[in-house]
Amino acid sequence: MLHPRPHPVRRELQGGMVLRTLEAEAELSGPCAVNAAVHGPEVGALLRSLALHHPDMDPRDVIWVEDQGEVVSTVCGIPWGLYLSGVQLSALELGLVATLERWRGRGFQRAMVGFFRERIQERGAHLSIIQGIPGFYRQFGYTYVLPLEGGLILEHRQLPATEHGLRVRKATPGDIPALAALHQGLTRELELHATRSEEVWSYLLEHAVETGTEGEFWVCERADAAAGYMFFPKHHFGDELVVSEAVATGTDTALAMLSHAVALSRERGTPGVRLSLHDGSTISQLARAGGTRHGPLRVAGVVPRHTEAPRRAAASAHRPTARVGMGRPHWRDCV
């Protein structure tokens, strides 16, 4: 979010170019336009939404290079909270990486990544993560660590409509306490998962419309109490209806949510449902008998040299087949 005193950065680069960070809301138009041109309008909108509404954003996390006032290249530091083997970690995602085509190949990204590394240390973050072009970010010290998408694909015929007696409806901001409690309770069994404050929940439900993280949260109720929820992202790979996050407190809840997902898929004309969830979830276990696996993408991560916390956490993870829940970014963790 924009602070009253953002302490903006301005650094001269070679060739008269300038590296800058955000100072005022009016300056967002340039970085947003670059991301919209490179990635699509929803990503430009995402940058604006993050900068103005995400509770953990700092204006200095919005970074760009400009030429005589024209923004030509951007990166953005997106904050995460992570939990690894009993250790609470903070992470900064290198995201919204974009350079206008005629300005590529001039080293702007390398200059901004150098400043981004400074931001990692200023924030006291334990590690950085990225979701991007396979292989490209190895030059900046990143390596592949976790599967990102993929999952089980269900065709409509594999899960006929069933009577379950539970109510499934779209979530509202009034559901945030219940959603947060479900999320926290179910992530305790995971070796690695993202943490999420109620303020971040509010951001997701109220400020993600028309952005790259837009989607629908649906709540499953048993006797007027929330028994589970699921999230359908609007933007994803593939043509299926994707479930990128789901929590079910019982088999009946999982069946009700699967049935609802298939019904939505039929209604919206998609070829099936893809469960981009971890293999140990109740919903994945129920669906596995009839589903087929889709090849995963990858998320890359790097541990900065200045901290030993992630290494200590990794050393304490003694289960060889530990389950993880991260999911699609920037904000989703599959449960």
Rank of each mutant, 00 (worst) to 15 (best):
E12M: 06
S276N: 14
G269R: 06
L179W: 10
L96R: 03
G325L: 07
R10N: 05
R305A: 14
G30A: 04
A256L: 03
R188M: 11
G95P: 04
L186I: 11
E216N: 04
N35G: 07
R293S: 13
A313P: 10
A300M: 14
A33W: 05
W218R: 15
V9Y: 04
A263K: 05
M57F: 12
R319P: 01
V262C: 03
P6D: 08
R110F: 02
A263T: 14
Q139E: 09
R157V: 10
Q68G: 15
R167K: 10
T74W: 09
A256H: 03
H183I: 01
I153V: 15
R11T: 12
L28N: 11
Q158R: 10
A309S: 13
V87I: 04
L255W: 10
L179Y: 07
S276H: 00
Q68K: 15
E70K: 14
H318R: 14
G215P: 12
P160A: 07
T249D: 10
L46P: 01
S265T: 09
H126D: 15
L186R: 09
V200L: 09
V302E: 12
P271Q: 01
G105E: 06
T249C: 05
E70F: 05
T195R: 14
A26G: 11
F116E: 08
S49D: 13
L127C: 10
H235S: 12
R268G: 06
P55M: 08
G165H: 01
A314F: 14
D67W: 07
V168N: 00
G295W: 09
A161K: 02
G124S: 08
A36L: 04
T211A: 03
T74D: 10
L50P: 08
L255M: 13
V168D: 00
V299P: 00
G81Y: 10
C334Q: 11
F116Q: 06
H306A: 11
V87L: 02
P147F: 06
W201D: 03
L52T: 11
F237N: 13
P6E: 04
P134E: 08
S90Y: 03
A225F: 00
L264N: 09
A26D: 15
A45Q: 14
D224V: 00
P41S: 13
W103P: 04
G301L: 12
L52E: 13
R110Y: 01
F217W: 14
R5G: 01
G272W: 02
W201S: 02
I153N: 01
M326H: 11
H39R: 09
E118P: 00
D175F: 03
L264S: 10
E42D: 14
A322Y: 12
G250Y: 00
Q158V: 03
L190F: 15
R10K: 13
E23P: 04
A225W: 00
H7N: 13
T162V: 13
P329D: 01
Q121L: 14
A178I: 06
F136Q: 15
A45G: 09
H3R: 12
L204R: 05
E191C: 14
E12I: 05
E308W: 11
G141D: 11
P329V: 12
L50K: 02
M1E: 10
E308H: 08
I176Y: 04
Y142S: 08
M17A: 15
E210G: 01
A289Y: 11
E66Q: 14
T251G: 00
L100Q: 09
G215D: 12
G151T: 09
H235A: 11
